[in-house]
Design a binder for these strands. Structure first.
Lengths: 115, 115
DNA sequence: CATTCATGTAACAAACAGGTTACCTATTTG
DNA sequence: CAAATAGGTAACCTGTTTGTTACATGAATG
């Protein structure tokens, strides 16, 4: 997964409404745009734009079925990010490292810094 | 972690340059702004703005040391997201579910859909 | 103490995000 | 077929992002 694709996935996830849409679509695979719209106050067009963002990030896959569009959640991009980050940043996910104390409690104190 | 905080973390990660800055800071904890700038073509101000985004997402912590600012990577937000998503979306991370075949190869076929 | 160094602020510009309304297209279905 | 239904496009508006240059501040240092 290259930078642009990763950008797209994180960007897509950087919106609570879109994350909720992912929830919904995962929970009712094959649902259509209007089904999703029922759960949101904003206009259908706004929802469609969000769905497009999710689809361009490959987090949602859709297939036309008559006049309707069936929506499916796709976990692959999230898995790819997980795989990459667990190898490249393996400490990120190791719980002892995430304890803030291990991160910052002993500052580097490069030169002077007397207080 | 609430929606807004999660938004901030994903938004911060949705930029290849910022992800690279995280790499750098994780690799040289306690480095300062100029150290980071050396690795980027854009202006120092641009880098500073990115660092601010990372800091507001709590992915970077900084402490003033004289005229310099020491930067530290903080994995806590990523861990929190991981924890939440592994419980809330546990299938996301289970490898067999991420195989696209399991997701979409047998469409729902709600009503007619003859081809 | 004057200068350099590291950082920070202000003001601006271009591009993008996220939303709207109005209108159009295609498919069911009575 | 007429009308309702599901979806899609176009144009527009507003606020945010992402970058710039110019200037200011505060700490080290010769």
């Amino acid at each position: 997964m290259n930078d642009a694709e990763m950008d797209a996935v994180f960007q897509a996830l950087a919106h609570a409404g879109r994350r909720r849409m992912l929830d919904l679509i995962r929970g009712m695979p094959g649902c259509n745009v209007n089904d999703v719209c029922k759960y949101f106050d904003s206009s259908r067009i706004a929802v469609m734009k969000h769905l497009r963002v999710l689809e361009e990030a490959d987090l949602v896959i859709s297939r036309k079925a008559g006049r309707s569009r069936q929506l499916y959640f796709n976990a692959v991009p999230i898995q790819l990010i997980y795989d990459r980050w667990t190898t490249e940043y393996s400490q990120f996910w190791a719980s002892q490292v995430t304890d803030l104390k291990f991160q910052i409690e002993q500052p580097v104190n490069k030169r002077a810094n007397r207080e």
